[in-house]
Design a protein around this nucleic acid. Structure first.
Lengths: 143, 143
DNA sequence: TTAAATTAAGACAAGAAAGTCTGAATAGCA
DNA sequence: TGCTATTCAGACTTTCTTGTCTTAATTTAA
């Protein structure tokens, strides 16, 4: 299966949301993150490094080092994260996989899916990680 | 990446749509199907066999054998095909991958995604393969 | 009854995604 | 300085998906 985003992308969304919960400037170690989220340590490390490379996160080595948002949480949308990890091809591909499907040669659900896809896009663009962070305040995520 | 359905599922949707174009009862060989759709022969064979197993298609061996729909095209929806191949987990999973996300502990986009997902479901249920078959009448798919 | 055309079945291979491990680099601190 | 905690980088492994191949079974028709 495969629900819109790769596992890596889902992890990225969760991790960035968690970081958005911390005061700006505070760094969080991978160890801390894996304790809250249930994401394999080394896999998460790789994902965070990639997000640093994309400019979404900053990092610092050494004791009291870790990762933090590179910009205010309000300014980072879910789409920024998705685009950095999975890219945005899903906004263009035919849902039935027809290579010929396009505005000129639409498949049977081209229009319907196009509308829905646009709404998914709006959802991702309108939601910033300060908002999704609220999720992490729930009891399931507390120490 | 991963746009909602697996490659196998996309191929299944295309193949069933193509079969829906033929008069009821007429059988189509794998060779014929691969000529129109650009799907690897043996992979398509495997997919068709699975659809026979699921009761969506019928098959017959030997010369002039092949595959055909097991029911009237109007009665087979896209959802029947998707469910047979990929299952319907995508109707339940959290789009951000939070294991805890549910009606009781919704994530930030739980509601928004729930609405969109329901619309995707409606799209699949309301579209039968007689309708999607029309797509295949277009010049790109003619001999 | 034999030959040809087809599906059936399942082992195998290649590729991609997910996850693991190790060693190096860096930073803080005693 | 040297110790420790951390990220960085990349090779490696495992698992899943996608695709290929081979052989058997079935059907039709000459």
């Amino acid at each position: 299966m495969s629900i819109l985003f790769s596992r890596e992308c889902e992890y990225a969304l969760q991790a960035v949301s968690y970081l958005a919960l911390k005061p700006a400037g505070e760094l969080t170690s991978i160890k801390d993150l894996t304790k809250k989220l249930r994401i394999p340590y080394h896999f998460l490390a790789k994902i965070l490094q990639r997000l640093v490379g994309k400019g979404l996160l900053i990092s610092q080595k050494g004791p009291s080092g870790g990762f933090g948002l590179a910009a205010p949480a309000e300014s980072i949308t879910l789409f920024h994260v998705v685009d950095a990890v999975d890219g945005s091809d899903f906004l263009h591909r035919c849902v039935m996989g027809f290579p010929e499907c396009s505005g000129k040669h639409p498949c049977a659900v081209h229009g319907t899916w196009g509308d829905l896809r646009e709404k998914v896009y709006q959802m991702l663009v309108n939601q910033n990680v300060a908002q999704t962070a609220q999720e992490m305040r729930k009891p399931e995520y507390r120490d």
